[in-house]
Design a protein around this nucleic acid. Structure first.
Lengths: 270, 270
DNA sequence: GGGTATTTGTCCGTATGTATT
DNA sequence: AAATACATACGGACAAATACC
């Protein structure tokens, strides 16, 4: 039982939300009503609402009110030995199968390699890279951003299609193989979670207070002799994405229920 | 450039942090000093600091001040085809190799199956399960909580060691194989990210405002004929964990730098 | 241990702006 | 245009945690 008044109010509202008394999408009492119900000042009930907001339980809409957040039907990316996580090469929608995936045409830029690309691609500081950027949406909702970096050297050696803003049918990695004989023999995916930057928050329409994190997966592809050939960075909001990995023999895929607000671990702190 | 004053103050401080002018661990000016520097009220500079706090850039310590967060040396869990993510069966520390992993003795409880276990283990509502809970720490810092649920039926059929609060040398899954002939032929891992609950926040010593999320991986193990035999739920803080998956031939593992505050994707929102 | 200064946390009141209906 | 509801910003007061003497 938290001592401060705003926390008591928040816990009371939280209990009402998690018990179903305030279902998804329901409007909370207005700040004025909360102020009367709990006999607190408006700033104090605002602190309580902000506490719930930070936890992703409610969202405020200026001019309308405060609402319990809607449940998001998660997008499930299946991880396979062949593909690894990070990409959208394989995916399964949750519950329904009729979602539509759309991909923007690549935006191609030639840039100085950044703090990630330089070490991952074993480049010298100041080296140039080709970046190919795509945005993926599902049913019109932005779902992931993906940028792949290739050393500029590949273009100079003849892989000119890399700098064209069109989809490469065989895939850019396949194109490198047929054009330059550079084959990807292995890849490493690193998955982290972090707060979104301003661009990601805008594109994904995430609440601007940064409480919804994004997955960031960095995939580095290597040739047989261990030279890195590309770096793919994919970001996707953590509130609408799940990753699934199957190993061995697993029965048919039913939809995965999103994580609910129940305690998975026993109480206590031993 | 954000309009509200508290955002301008926050962006200014953010720029000082990201430029290195305020390095990791450095103390920010006190609220009184900020109030003088920016000619704003104390509540306004507090809003600015709170904005930075929500984004995980700074942390406040009552009686001391506000500080730029320390960089956390991430714990890297390597995902392999054999093991999948979720567990700590295989892991690599970041940068250094001299970290010590400690595991608590299992806490064993017999419970009614919860909202996750019932569907995952194909149980009837109200069925009983054995839960085995362990907490893992690295260098004394709590790193992951893990609970595995087994149908109570296994104990009734003779796997009595499941309900003993001791480590099972061959592993609980291996024990089921030798004792009952129940072999795990496959498993599915589902990875999500969510806000921590109160218990997790306490054990991991996460900031109580819930801005640091936790990974939750649910692993369900299946027999050859597709029957689920166990459900393992692992939670680990997203601020100190990374997951790595290697596919094919990948050169020697150098340490992975944590995600820095640089833009990976091009600007704009087209 | 006690006392004091410093710093953040909580709570109140008020006024004005902005977004939506 | 008017009403409603949240957002921002100011002011003040006291409490709680910490550090230092």
């Amino acid at each position: 039982m938290p001592d401060p008044m705003y926390r008591q109010i928040a816990e009371d509202l939280r209990q009402k939300i998690e018990s179903g008394q305030l279902p998804h999408g329901a409007q909370l009492p207005t700040e004025l009503e909360l102020r009367e119900q709990y006999e607190a000042s408006r700033n104090t009930v605002r602190d309580a609402v902000k506490w719930l907001t930070t936890r992703g339980l409610v969202e405020t809409r200026p001019g309308q009110g405060t609402f319990v957040v809607e449940m998001i039907d998660p997008f499930i990316t299946e991880v396979t030995q062949e593909y690894g996580f990070g990409g959208v090469e394989a995916y399964l929608p949750g519950y329904t199968t009729d979602r539509k995936l759309t991909v923007t045409v690549p935006r191609v830029e030639i840039q100085k390699a950044g703090d990630i690309a330089v070490p991952e691609l074993h480049l010298d500081a100041g080296a140039m890279v080709v970046s190919r950027f795509q945005q993926r949406s599902i049913d019109g909702t932005p779902w992931s951003l993906q940028t792949t970096f290739y050393p500029m050297r590949f273009v100079e050696e003849g892989a000119v299609q890399l700098i064209q803003a069109t989809n490469i049918d065989e895939g850019a990695v396949g194109y490198l193989a047929t054009k330059l004989g550079i084959k990807e023999a292995g890849k490493r995916d690193v998955m982290t979670v972090r707060a979104p930057d301003a661009i990601e928050a805008a594109i994904f329409r995430l609440p601007e207070d940064g409480r919804v994190n994004v997955f960031e997966t960095r995939r580095t592809g290597y040739t047989d002799d261990g030279k890195p050939i590309r770096l793919t960075v994919t970001t996707s909001p953590a509130d609408r994405n799940q990753f699934v990995l199957k190993v061995g023999k697993v029965p048919g895929t039913e939809g995965q229920a999103p994580a609910g607000p129940e305690g998975s671990h026993p109480g206590g702190s031993g």
